[in-house]
Simulated assay, not measured.
Amino acid sequence: MTSAEETMAEEESSRNFVDSTVHVDVKDYYGRIVKKTSDLQTSACVAPPNPVPHFIRQALGKVHPEITDRYYGCGLVVPECLEGCRILDLGSGTGRDCFMLSQLVGEKGHLTGIDMTEDQLAVARTYVDYHMQEFGYKKPNVTFVQGYIEALTEAGLEKNSFDIIISNCVVNLSPDKRQVLAEAYSVLKDGGELYFSDIYSNGRLTEEIKNNKVLWGECLGGALWWKDLLEFAEEVGFSPPRLVTAHVVTVDKQELKDILGDYRFISATYRLFKVPKGDTRPCQVIYNGNITGVEDSFQFDCQNRFKVGEVVAVDGELANILTHSRFADDFTFQPPGGSCGVKPKTAVVDPFELALQATKRGLGSATGGCCSTQSAACCK
């Protein structure tokens, strides 16, 4: 099949995308059954009680209460360097993360939220003008689109058009996670990032669990085995996922616990980058301290913290990410393109082990800095 024929086949497939049974059930669950956060039956779709930086608390404080009352997220998706960026929120719901981040990208940046549930989109659209007035913007920098996260281009989103994609406890609700990652990869710019929080299981789930509508709606029935994320990311072209945070998900309702058996669940935040396959040799990097809010120390993921002026050994994949992403100007590489002779930390981390460490320390989450930074002018 020629490239032109492949493109036509992709477009035809996209036009033919229709609701699956899962999509119908999820729409019903979040459109009719769950009206506010307190209606949820597990902690899966509720953000962990981690300390929230002051600038994010300020931004959240300007979001209308009706929006925050209908928030169903499992993390806080605030990566670094946001000012001026074009960001896409997969499964934006009533728009809490969009309205919060619209303040951090600034009036020159833009947020697009996509969701398949019209009931939630109606709420989000009702409050666009309210928030723009609250933020002092002359024109809206937030747009909401009805569509499916498995068919972004069909919804009218252009390929290679976003600097960052975020998602908060939504990918698990899709029956085709690999397609979600493939579509995200397609609409990201070169060097762009998928930064998302979601629910993961410690093994592939049984059909009984997958077919339980309540467990699926509660973000557990569709949870991906965390090792499958690594495989899917590689298949669609992303860099290996970098684990940022992880925390244990609790299930209190006995009838749900009986169905789940020995399966365990965690909420984890990962960052994946669309960068070229290049030199994978480890090297040394020096953080220059130019990112607003983390001038002294920048926690990139759960294993890599960069202190300004300090020489740090990184694996080849991370060196490739830092070289080709929006962080390129914030680091000095030594020696350029060469090997430093120092063994870097391994890239793959078991999120269940990280979450267990956090539990033992009495923390809500083991963190690699998902909410520890402020936005900076990094997107051009």
Rank of each mutant, 00 (worst) to 15 (best):
A184P: 00
K360I: 14
K277W: 09
D279F: 00
P335L: 10
E150F: 07
K253D: 14
Y287N: 02
L173W: 08
N320D: 12
P79F: 03
C340G: 15
H131I: 05
I166P: 00
K213E: 11
D163L: 06
S186W: 00
R361F: 03
E317A: 13
Y270V: 05
S365N: 05
E353I: 09
K210M: 14
N320K: 06
Y130V: 09
V26K: 02
D262I: 03
K343M: 14
L230W: 11
Y72V: 11
V311Q: 11
V249P: 04
K253H: 09
Y270P: 03
F17K: 04
G316V: 09
S102W: 03
P335K: 12
T7C: 03
C81L: 15
L363A: 13
D28R: 15
Y270D: 07
M1W: 11
A377P: 01
P53H: 04
P351V: 11
F238Q: 07
G75Q: 09
F273T: 02
L194K: 01
L205P: 00
F265A: 06
C378A: 13
T117M: 02
L229Y: 02
M132G: 00
N50G: 04
Q357D: 12
G93E: 07
I209N: 05
R70M: 12
A355D: 06
K35D: 09
G369A: 12
D301V: 05
A223E: 04
L60M: 14
F306I: 05
M1S: 14
K345G: 02
K189S: 11
H324E: 08
N141E: 08
F162G: 02
F55H: 15
M8R: 15
L173H: 10
Y72E: 04
G309S: 05
V63K: 00
V312I: 15
A246I: 06
Q284E: 14
V244N: 01
H324T: 02
C169I: 04
Q146I: 07
S92F: 04
D129S: 14
F331Y: 09
L224M: 15
P175S: 13
G261P: 05
S375D: 12
T323V: 06
G61F: 12
D330R: 00
P335I: 08
I291T: 07
T206G: 08
S20I: 02
V244I: 15
E207W: 03
L230M: 09
V77T: 15
P140T: 12
R70T: 10
E218W: 08
I166C: 02
I166R: 06
G84K: 08
D228G: 07
S186P: 02
P51C: 01
L111N: 00
F352E: 08
E12W: 05
E12Q: 08
V236P: 07
F135M: 14
L322T: 06
G93L: 06
G113L: 06
I33H: 10
C371G: 13
E235V: 09
E183K: 03
L256P: 02
T373H: 12
T112W: 13
